[in-house]
Design a protein around this nucleic acid. Structure first.
Length: 439
RNA sequence: GCUGUGAUGGUGUAGAGGUUAGCACGGUAGGUUGUGGUCCUGCCAGCCCGGGUUCAAUUCCCGGUCACGGCCCCA
């Protein structure tokens, strides 16, 4: 037996129905925020991703050479391809651009629940505008999406890389350097909460370990927007500019007016997201339900477009949403709460089985065509069983109603329309209009 | 990269060193009823793969594959 490759999944009609409903929901929310869908190739030049993330990513890529020995790779994410697309196709498009995307990505790593080798990402990028208002627009879109899909118990964690960067440079760390800049190293240690490591690192840079005290105080802050005041006090004591903090404050107050209130909001000034191209606001959404793989969304303001000669478009802002993980969380919560509809709108649209019974099918074909032409989902019975078995089959296949036409009906010019959920049945004239009126 | 658990029809499960590998759902064919979440009958379909131990392995052992967890990582 040939089986599907590790970390991949097949989606059966029932599963696909839910995924399509979810994608449509995300898409409609993106659209209400002005984001327009784009699509890029499944494979790209390997260089695109090494330029963005460094040569180390190659071991996590499905990289290969084509027959002309071009170095290519299945895409591991969608931000870089979209940046590339902007540089190739949309240089002269009026800015800012609001773009959305959805598609599968591939990473070569151990697969687990919520972590697949082929996974799906939905995301948006707001290109060519920056600052609290632009960032709020992006986060508001994310909040609207999560709110609309009915996800519960999630937490928005929001921070600003600038706060930490300013604090670190003010105690004497450099943001330049071959290899990993000292500032980035310190951020990584802070993100992990590795205080011993940080003290050691500061000393190795010729800085007193006590300089880390203020940083520790910053990272110890726990709470929502009210912690900004305390953070400001700490920064003042350190003699560090609080401009980044002020921006974050503006962003949060804009968000209050612009977006649904998240179930939980946490300010975390030490979120580094592990990436040096994030330069300003950063945010992520976590769902406790999912355990170790609980991050379902992440994004922020970044500088990447300079890699494509588009320096004037930096910084831009966007996020990626883990399509599979949100669905997993929704399913887990749906089961927990006994909900039957997991994704809003996934319930099947009305559909009808046309059931000719001991008559020539030619008598009903015009009706089938008419129903379809008017946009109704109509399926002609192909099994030719008796009525009881056909009704059973129809119920199992999720039809909402069945139109039965037997010899007597034909004689009287009528048909019987049975509603499968209520069990009620009525006799209706055998004409498209009469049938449509009932369905 | 480290580590733990598991694997029996399509699904959920029972079971034992020698069984016709059981059950339920499902699928399918038919019987009964011009009206379904019935009833009756038949059929379909399974011990993940490869080695080892043994007279005998689906069962015990080792390896692989896949799945699910815990760390690490996560663009």
């Amino acid at each position: 037996m040939v089986q599907r490759p590790r970390g991949t999944r097949d989606f059966t009609p029932a599963v696909m129905n839910r995924r399509l409903a979810f994608e449509n929901l995300l898409e409609s929310k993106a659209r209400t925020h002005g984001f327009k869908r784009v699509q890029t190739p499944i494979f790209e030049s390997l260089d695109l991703f090494t330029a963005k993330s460094g040569p180390g990513v190659v071991k996590q890529l499905y990289a290969f050479q084509d027959k002309s020995e071009r170095d290519l790779t299945l895409r591991p994410e969608l931000t870089a391809p979209v940046m590339r697309m902007i540089s190739e196709e949309m240089r002269s498009s009026p800015k800012p651009l609001r773009l959305s995307y959805f598609g599968q990505c591939f990473r070569y790593e151990e697969s687990k629940k919520g972590r697949y080798r082929e996974f799906f990402q939905y995301g948006i990028e707001l290109i060519g505008s920056s600052g609290p208002l632009a960032e709020a627009e992006v986060i508001a879109t994310a909040l609207d999406m999560l709110d609309a899909c009915g996800l519960a118990d999630w937490e928005l964690v929001i921070g600003h890389v600038g706060v930490l960067r300013d604090a670190l440079t003010s105690i004497g760390l450099s943001s330049e350097g071959e290899g990993e800049p000292p500032v980035a190293s310190a951020m990584r240690l802070l993100d992990k909460g590795d205080w011993d490591g940080l003290a050691e690192f500061l000393v190795s840079q010729g800085i007193a370990a006590s300089a880390g005290d203020g940083l520790r105080a910053l990272s110890g802050l726990d709470g929502g927007s009210e912690t900004l005041t305390q953070a400001k006090t700490i920064l003042d004591e350190m003699g560090v500019s609080s401009s980044s903090l002020d921006e974050l404050g503006q962003l949060l107050s804009i968000l209050e007016m612009l977006a649904p209130t998240p179930p939980s909001l946490k300010v975390n000034l030490c979120v580094a997201r592990g990436l040096d191209y994030y330069t300003g606001m950063v945010f992520e959404v976590n769902v406790a339900e999912l355990g170790g793989e609980g991050q379902v969304l992440g994004g922020g303001s970044y500088r990447l477009l300079h890699l494509f000669g588009l320096d004037d478009l930096d910084p831009s802002c966007g996020f990626g949403l883990g399509f599979d993980r949100v669905l997993l969380a929704l399913e887990a919560q749906g089961e927990r709460d006994g909900r039957s509809e997991i994704v809003p709108g996934e319930s099947a649209a009305p559909s009808t089985l046309i059931l000719p019974f001991r008559i020539d099918v030619g008598n009903v074909l015009p009706l089938v065509k008419g129903l379809r032409d008017s946009g109704h989902s109509a399926e002609l019975d192909l099994r030719g069983k008796n009525i009881g078995k056909s009704l059973d089959w129809a119920a199992k296949n999720g039809f909402t109603s069945v139109v039965i036409i037997g010899p007597q009906d034909l004689e009287n010019g009528v048909c019987s329309i049975k509603n499968l959920s209520s069990g009620e049945q009525q006799s209706v004239a055998l004409s498209l209009d009469a049938v449509l009126a009932v369905l």
